[in-house]
Write a protein that binds this DNA or RNA. Sequence first.
DNA 1: TACTGGATTCACT
DNA 2: GTGAATCCAGTAA
Length: 193
Amino acid sequence: MNPLPQSWFAKSALTLAPRLLGKVVKKGSCVGIIVETEAYGTDPASHAYRVTKRSAPMRDSWGHWYVYFTYGMHWCANVTSDKGGIGAVLIRAVEPKGGLGTMKHRRKTDNIRALCSGPAKFCQAFGITGAQNKSPVTDGFARHTGRSVSGFAIYDAPEIPKTRIATSPRVGITSGTELPWRFYIKGNPFVSR
DNA sequence: TACTGGATTCACT
DNA sequence: GTGAATCCAGTAA
């Protein structure tokens, strides 16, 4: 299984979000399949709407992790996208495939369906914090530059057939005029509510 | 410097 | 279905 190359992420967030479904995310012993993503356009609710010091990784690069802290207690992991633009795709849910013991310990639950079925749950289960912010999504990039490998990467996997992908605008976020788009694998029990 | 609000989660009713 | 927990980033003054 090969890490996705940096160039693979040089597409718009709306294009990238459904194509990330089915890809494999690994960090240390933890392994999972991405089953739900979310893409924002120019919604004022999006961190990309106004580039600040915090959201600068979205402007400066693509194919990097953009990890931010929210609600005083949760981390959320995004993959930066949009070559020549500004954007990121939020990883909302992952189907656990490896390192379940570690995930259960971090999440303090034995309920496998509750391990990664939410953006903050995913970060907690995988031990993702601000330390991973701005690190490249691909191990290959790290090797190429000689930087230390983050150990936190997305690996290639067969495309999910479009017929298995569902799309729905996210409700409940009313600050903007444009709703973020949620993509998920139909029937997968690990997607968030 | 102080204040406000948030891409969430979970316990409780 | 509702509300509390919690603290950082952004903004206004």
